[in-house]
Amino acid sequence: MAGIVLAGGLSSRMGRDKALLPWRGQTLLAHMYGLLERAGAEVVRVSGAYPEFDGVADTVERCGPLGGLFSVAKVLPDGPAWVVPVDMPQLDVALLWQLRDAPQAVCVIFAGQPLPMRLNIDEACRTLLESMIQNPDGPRSLQALQRRLGVLELPVPAAAGSFLVNCNTPEQWEELAS
């Protein structure tokens, strides 16, 4: 398994770079990177210009998480990868392992949650990502990618709801961090 942290983008709703927000003595980016390593990712790559994490800058600007995934997928070898957002700090290893251990599928998510996901990166996936990015009329979303790939949706474990919360605004961050 590889790991991908989606940390590119403008963080416009947050008003500052979400990846650099403090979380338990480190940045959110360092926390999510470490989470993927603890889960067993052999290699972890970051979308966004974060040289200290060997980040991969978006090759196509303003395409959201899909653009970040496209950029990183181009530099990863074929195989399965966990894809996580930088702003989901309560995600844990056990949930990532549930995605890893799910039945074979190109794409696996928890029902109603586009992220985290297990994605099989191969030439077909890269080609689909590129075609979606190249189409200015869209759709350019992770959900659209998942529908086109055929997604396996796992039930959300009863106690896992709070672990799958991400934060996009200062108010959400304040509530999560308190």
Score class of each variant (00 low, 15 high):
Q104G: 07
L29S: 10
A177T: 08
W23M: 05
M1H: 09
G15A: 08
G150F: 07
A19C: 06
L66P: 02
A30K: 11
G34F: 13
P157F: 03
A160W: 00
F163I: 01
T59A: 13
G161E: 10
A41D: 06
R140G: 06
C63N: 10
A2G: 09
G3Q: 06
W23A: 08
T127S: 15
P51N: 02
A39Q: 01
G3P: 10
V72K: 10
A39H: 03
V151G: 01
I4A: 05
V60A: 14
A160M: 04
P77N: 14
G55D: 05
C125A: 05
D58Q: 11
L91I: 13
I121S: 00
V56N: 12
E42A: 15
F163P: 01
I133H: 06
W23C: 00
M117D: 01
G138P: 03
P65R: 04
S71N: 10
L35C: 12
A2T: 10
S141I: 05
A111R: 14
P85V: 02
Y33Q: 08
R45S: 13
P116F: 00
G25M: 02
V56F: 13
Q143L: 07
A160C: 04
V43C: 12
A105T: 09
Q104M: 09
A39G: 01
W97R: 14
R100Q: 14
G64N: 15
G79H: 12
A49D: 13
F110Q: 06
E37Q: 14
M1C: 08
G34I: 05
L21R: 00
K74N: 11
V151R: 11
L95P: 03
G68D: 13
Y33C: 10
V56W: 12
L36P: 00
G68K: 09
G48F: 08
V108K: 00
V165C: 04
L164S: 06
I121M: 02
F110K: 09
G55I: 06
R38I: 15
V5N: 05
C125D: 01
A39I: 03
V75W: 13
A124T: 11
L95V: 03
L69N: 11
R118D: 04
L69F: 14
L152F: 09
F70H: 15
A2S: 13
N168A: 12
S141K: 08
G67E: 10
N120A: 05
C167Y: 04
A39F: 01
W97S: 03
A49V: 09
R24Q: 15
L28R: 04
A49F: 11
A19Q: 00
N120R: 15
V156A: 06
V44E: 07
V151A: 08
V56Y: 14
Q113F: 07
D137A: 05
G161M: 05
L129P: 13
V156D: 06
V46S: 04
A124P: 00
A105H: 09
L164A: 10
P139G: 09
G79R: 14
R13F: 00
S12N: 02
D122G: 15
D54P: 03
G8M: 07
V83Y: 04
A39T: 02
P85L: 07
L95S: 08
L145H: 02
E61A: 15
P51W: 01
T169V: 15
L149H: 06
E61Y: 08
A19H: 02
E171T: 07
V75Q: 15
Q134M: 04
E153C: 05
R126G: 12
S141C: 11
L28C: 12
D92F: 01
M1L: 08
R38T: 14
W97L: 07
P155D: 10
C125Y: 02
